[in-house]
Write a protein that binds this DNA or RNA. Structure first.
Ligand SMILES: [Mn+2]
Ligand SMILES: [Mn+2]
Ligand SMILES: [Zn+2]
Ligand SMILES: [Zn+2]
Lengths: 141, 141
DNA sequence: AAATAAACGCAATAACGTTGCAATGATTTT
DNA sequence: AAAATCATTGCAACGTTATTGCGTTTATTT
């Protein structure tokens, strides 16, 4: 299972035209294995003891993966970025996220596509939308 | 005009059961005079030279005002809080915000009420929604 | 005017993320 | 297989936003 993700991750990285380093592969594998959007810290914790990366390296790898559209970043009111792998659905379609106000977990609401346009004042140009539903997750409610 | 806001601010503060300090009054006045949501820094800049408050005091005053529902905080992808006075419309109705991706200005889309509920996975409980439309403002587009 | 508790200012601290630069290592070329 | 190349890494320092502790000040009540 995880080995498969690992290979998949490596291929995705190569196809994006970047160097397939152990770090990048591992990070992307972790994100592919995860269903929720997780923080930099959480990714760090999921890295095996045998492969601890520097904080900075992790940040840079994530930035690179996001730039290649292999993952996306989710903003949040706690000022912490969360990262999530781009499944087929995600990559070219905007979607909403849910954040638990108690345990802070963030999930993708993949089945919640957002209309592309939105009524704005005159002269304003629409680019994208960021939507976070807040509440209690199943465990916390 | 501004003196009126000043009185209004003072009254709102007293009605909320807090001490009407010069700082709080001034801060709320500034937010009442502003149509966009502005940052801590921007509020600081709008304070008169004769009344420069400590950063911490400003943060605490804003927190207090938000707790009393006289203002609301807007989260953003630049990790900076923006603050906006609660007009009648705002206080009891959720609304969306717009952020310019070029000049970073944030405005309230007051006329864009959001449905109270939202379809969530089983077991999840809805509390509130945070919606930011991003794009270019009239000046930047 | 005195008493009281809330609010303030200052300094230190926390958290998240970024930048510069020399060392390393993945990939290509020979 | 070895050498060359340059993207990537690790480390240390830095930047920004926001928070906490604590002694002092001040708005409000008595
Ligand atoms: Mn997502
Ligand atoms: Mn608003
Ligand atoms: Zn939860
Ligand atoms: Zn703009």
């Amino acid at each position: 299972m995880f080995i498969k993700l690992h290979r998949n991750a490596e291929e995705l990285i190569r196809l994006s035209g970047g160097r397939a380093t152990v770090g990048r592969i591992r990070i992307l594998s972790i994100l592919l294995a995860e269903q929720q959007a997780i923080t930099h810290r959480e990714i760090e914790q999921r890295l095996p003891q045998t492969l601890q990366l520097d904080r900075v390296t992790l940040y840079r790898a994530l930035e690179w993966l996001a730039g290649k559209n292999l993952i996306h970043k989710v903003t949040s009111d706690d000022r912490v970025w969360r990262y999530h792998a781009n499944r087929e659905l995600h990559s070219h379609q905007q979607h909403a996220h849910f954040k638990c106000t108690r345990c802070a977990q963030v999930i993708c609401l993949s089945d919640l596509p957002i209309e592309r346009s939105w009524p704005l004042p005159i002269g304003y140009r629409f680019q994208e939308i960021e939507l976070t539903v807040k509440g209690l997750c199943a465990d916390c409610s």
